[in-house]
Nucleic acid binder design. Structure first.
Ligand code: ZN
Ligand code: ZN
Ligand code: ZN
Ligand code: ZN
Lengths: 146, 146
DNA sequence: CTGACTATTGAGACCTGATCTCGACAAGCA
DNA sequence: TGCTTGTCGAGATCAGGTCTCAATAGTCAG
C-alpha cells in the first residue's frame, strides 16, 4: 500500500512538498485515535527510528493545524494536546481517562451562539466548545460493580 | 475605604492568610474588566511598586483559580489569559480586539450537552465554551463607514 | 501585648513547550 | 541532470510556569 494517508494528501493538495519528515509525522499522527502531546509524538518518532527534529515536528504540527487536519486541544489541567481531525467545523468530546476523542457536530449550538450574540451585542466570530468526560469503555472500568 | 475587594474576601472566607502580596495581586486583578496575562500582571505590579515575586504571583493566580474568582482562558492564538470572574458556572465572550470579556450563562447549552451525551455514550463531566468576536465598541471602530 | 507556630514569601534554578536562526540539504521541475 | 527554493537540523533562545529552601510575617493562644 502506498500509504493513502489523508494527512499526506492534505499536504500535497495544499502544494507543500512531501518530504520524509512530513510523511513520518503524518504516519505517526494517523496512528492515533485519541489525542497526543508533542512530547509523545517526539518519543514515538524516536522509537520508530524516524529522524525528525523537534523544530520540524512543531513546524509540521503548526502546518497541519493550519490545514485543519490536526487541532489543538486545551485539556482541563492546562496541558496542550493535538488531535487528528476532519476539516469541517466541529467539537471534541475527550475521555479524561483514556484520551479517546469523539467528534461532535454543532447540533443546535449555532442557535445558542446567535442568541448570545443578540443579547450581548457582540459580533461573534468563532467559538470553541470542549467536552470532557468518560467514554463508554472507561465508564465500565470505573464502575464495575454498579 | 477598606478595599472591600471581593477577591480578598474570597481568600479570607476560604481561610487563607491575608498577606501583603495577596492583597496587592487581588487589587491589581480587580482593576481589570477584560482579560490579562500573567506577564501583564507582573508588569503592572512592578509599575505600581508593589513587590510580588513571580513565584508568588503564579501561586496567587493558582489559588484564585481554585477559588473560582479568576478563570484561565485559552485564547485562539494559543496564549493563556486570566479573567476576574464570578463563582457560578458560566462562559466567556471575549472581544478579540480589546480583550473585554462578557460573562454568558448557559442559556440552553445544558440541553445540548445532554443530547451529546445521549448520542455518544460518554458520561460528560464538564465542558468549556469560549466565544470570540468583537464587542459593540470595537465593531463601531472597525466599520466606521458601514 | 508577646511569643510561637506555621503558612507564605522571594530569589533563583529549573523545566516544558515552543519558536527562531542559519547554513546544509533535497523535492520538484525543466 | 542540474537548478531553484522550500524544508531541515542543531542548538540557542524565549515564554510560561514550577520547585526548593531559607527567611519572613500572619494569626492566635496565653
Ligand atoms: Zn476533530
Ligand atoms: Zn476512555
Ligand atoms: Zn467569568
Ligand atoms: Zn472590544
Amino acid at each position: 500500500m502506498t500509504s493513502s494517508n489523508p494527512i499526506v494528501d492534505a499536504l500535497d493538495a495544499a502544494g507543500y512538498r512531501l518530504t520524509g519528515p512530513r510523511r513520518a509525522v503524518a504516519d505517526l499522527i494517523a496512528g492515533y485515535d485519541g489525542h497526543f502531546t508533542a512530547a509523545e509524538l517526539e518519543a514515538a518518532a524516536r522509537e520508530h527510528r524516524v529522524g525528525v527534529s523537534r523544530a520540524t515536528l512543531f513546524r509540521a504540527l503548526e502546518l497541519l493545524t493550519e490545514l485543519h487536519v490536526v487541532e489543538r486541544l486545551d485539556l482541563p489541567g492546562g496541558e496542550h494536546a493535538y488531535v487528528p481531525c476532519v476539516r469541517a467545523h466541529h467539537h471534541h468530546l475527550v475521555c479524561s481517562r483514556c484520551g479517546r476523542v469523539a467528534e461532535v457536530e454543532d447540533c443546535g449550538l449555532a442557535e445558542i451562539v446567535a442568541e448570545i450574540a443578540r443579547r450581548s451585542g457582540y459580533r461573534i466570530e468563532s467559538h470553541r466548545l470542549e467536552l470532557f468526560g468518560l467514554c463508554r469503555h472507561c465508564q465500565a472500568k470505573a464502575a464495575p460493580g454498579a
